[in-house]
């Protein structure tokens, strides 16, 4: 049995997996460990001997994408299952394994990748930048955001922000890892704690005003909201502070709407454009062909 202790990143896994694969190590003979979780006591395995590796190991690009996502997950079986998938794709000769959605290994990896995809998507949606300063020399605005993703997705999720907010300076801080953009480079640094982030922006009030006004109290659907915006995200969303207030006042607002006496119709104002509209002939027959079809 070989113990493969690695940093929990895609590049560490890939390096190790490539080496094991070249040696032809079978998946059941590897015990994968996360170096950040494992006590330091564990000895590194003996230095790899070099047997003659098979010619270049080729895997589909699709596998590399899948593996990058799966490695960002936190399930401790991920490195092992991923390696087994890799082994079966190469030594095992199951070249079409990835297009086999009923295969348990493929399926499991796809399920993990999907969870990662969702987490990335939520990060793109729920990061909230706060303006902290304007650089005097460059005149660039500087923003900071705090976010708590479920998985280790900072490196996967941040290129999106670089494309979108290239002309601002920004940092996104999270508990495991932080990303920084200065107009030139996207760099990463270790995680920090929430206390390092300013917790309000002058625009948050205006944003809450918008959120309050765009909500329609006549159609309360709290579960639909929660399934897309789970409560775990609320603490970092400025607008979430008023959710309870909006829900609890909606019944009263609805009652008022219904109790309002109906407004009579006002006469047409004296406006040339309106008169033209009302004066025109209506070419449309009252019954359309499909209406005929439906009603006949």
């Amino acid at each position: 049995m070989i113990t493969a202790t690695i940093q929990p990143t895609f590049s560490a896994w890939r390096g190790k997996a490539r080496e094991l694969l070249q040696r032809g190590i079978r998946p059941e003979d590897v015990d994968w460990c996360d170096a950040t979780q494992t006590p330091a006591l564990l000895m590194e395995e003996p230095a790899a001997y070099s047997a003659s590796p098979p010619a270049d190991i080729k895997v589909p690009a699709e596998f590399l994408n899948l593996a990058a996502s799966v490695c960002a997950h936190t399930d401790e079986r991920r490195f092992a299952i991923l390696y087994r998938l890799l082994y079966r794709l190469t030594w095992g000769g199951e070249r079409h394994l990835l297009s086999h959605p009923a295969d348990p290994d493929t399926r499991q990896c796809q399920v993990w990748a999907k969870a990662i995809g969702r987490d990335i998507h939520k990060m793109h949606a729920f990061v909230r930048f706060r303006l902290i300063a304007v650089d005097e020399a460059t005149q660039r605005e500087q923003f900071v955001a705090w976010f708590e993703p479920e998985y280790r997705i900072v490196q996967l999720a941040t290129p999106f922000f670089r494309k979108r907010f290239a002309s601002m300076d920004w940092s996104i801080l999270t508990p495991h890892e932080c990303a920084h953009w200065d107009g030139q480079d996207l760099t990463f640094s270790p995680g920090v704690s929430k206390s390092e982030v300013p917790d309000a922006d002058a625009h948050d009030d205006l944003w809450r005003t918008y959120y309050r006004s765009i909500f329609n109290p006549a159609r309360l659907k709290v579960q639909a909201m929660q399934s897309e915006m789970p409560q775990k995200y609320w603490k970092n969303l400025p607008e979430a502070q008023i959710i309870h207030e909006l829900i609890s006042s909606s019944g009263e607002r609805m009652k008022q709407m219904i109790a309002t006496p109906e407004r009579p119709v006002k006469p047409m104002p004296d406006n040339a454009y309106l008169k033209k509209l009302h004066g025109r002939k209506r070419p449309e027959p009252l019954l359309d062909k499909e209406q005929d079809a439906v009603e006949s």
């Binding site: 494309k163 979108r164 959120y211 765009i214 309360l220 579960q223 897309e228």
Partner: peptide, 22 residues
């Protein structure tokens, strides 16, 4: 990415929040 202006589009749209009407 050209550093001029701001913003991006393409691909899936993003819902940045949800109101209690779902």
């Amino acid at each position: 990415r050209d550093g001029k202006g701001i913003g991006s589009t393409g691909g899936m749209g993003i819902c940045h929040s949800y109101t209690p009407d779902g």
